[in-house]
Every structure is written in structure tokens, then in C-alpha cells.
């Protein structure tokens, strides 16, 4: 039988993979992918916990809301990446360190 715990473990794994991608990848697109993975991990959790709210389906509703937001976010993020590329001629986050003091 698949319990809540199984969902949570899968979610955590996805989150960890996404986190790894965000921190370690050398490509901004893949970082963005990592972010999407972490969002999806969160959505999975929402849906999994949604089972306990069978009257109002708050979990599912919130998951849908998050998916839409993530899509919008990706759009903005891709636009930023494009602009970064235009400016720096690279999308490797290692090389973009203008924020350094």
C-alpha cells in the first residue's frame, strides 16, 4: 500500500535533486530546471497532504495555483536568462559575479 510517507520521500528526493541542480549546475537553464523540480516537489507534497482535506480540496487547489505561478515564473526567468546572456555572453552562473563587493 502506498502511504503518505512514500509520497513525502519521493517529494524529498525530487527536492534534493532540484536543490543540487540549483547549487551545482554550470548552466542557468539547468538551474531553472532545478527550481522547477523543487517547486514540483512542493506541489507533490501539497497534493499528497490534500487527501486530508477531502471537503474543500485545498491541497489540489493550491497545487494548481502553484503550477500556474511556476509557469509564469519560468517565463520571467527565461527572459532574465536571455537578457543575462545578451549582456554577459554566457549563462554560466559561475561567471556572473557582479554582485561581489
Amino acid at each position: 500500500m502506498i502511504t503518505l510517507t512514500h509520497f513525502l520521500v519521493v517529494g524529498a528526493c525530487i527536492f534534493a535533486i532540484g536543490l543540487y541542480a540549483v547549487i551545482a549546475r554550470r548552466n542557468a537553464i539547468l538551474v531553472l530546471v532545478g527550481i522547477e523540480l523543487m517547486i514540483n516537489a512542493a506541489i507533490l507534497n501539497l497534493v499528497a497532504f490534500g487527501r486530508y482535506d477531502s471537503t474543500r480540496y485545498g491541497g489540489q487547489a493550491f497545487a494548481l495555483f502553484a503550477i500556474v505561478l511556476a509557469a509564469a515564473g519560468v517565463a520571467v526567468a527565461l527572459a532574465i536568462i536571455l537578457n543575462v546572456y545578451k549582456h554577459y555572453k554566457t549563462i554560466n552562473p559561475e561567471d556572473i559575479n557582479k554582485l561581489r563587493d
Binding site: 536543490l19 540549483v22 547549487i23 551545482a24 538551474v31 552562473p93 559561475e94 556572473i96 559575479n97 557582479k98 554582485l99 561581489r100 563587493d101
Partner: peptide, 17 residues
């Protein structure tokens, strides 16, 4: 402390995490 200010997004993310 200024050493930590690498300016790289990923470092910041790591430290936040």
C-alpha cells in the same frame, strides 16, 4: 565576512540553504 560575498547566485543560495 566579505570573503563570503562572492557575487555568485549559487553561493548565496547555498548559504541560505
Amino acid at each position: 565576512l566579505r570573503r563570503s560575498q562572492t557575487g555568485r547566485l549559487q553561493d548565496y543560495m547555498a548559504s541560505v540553504f
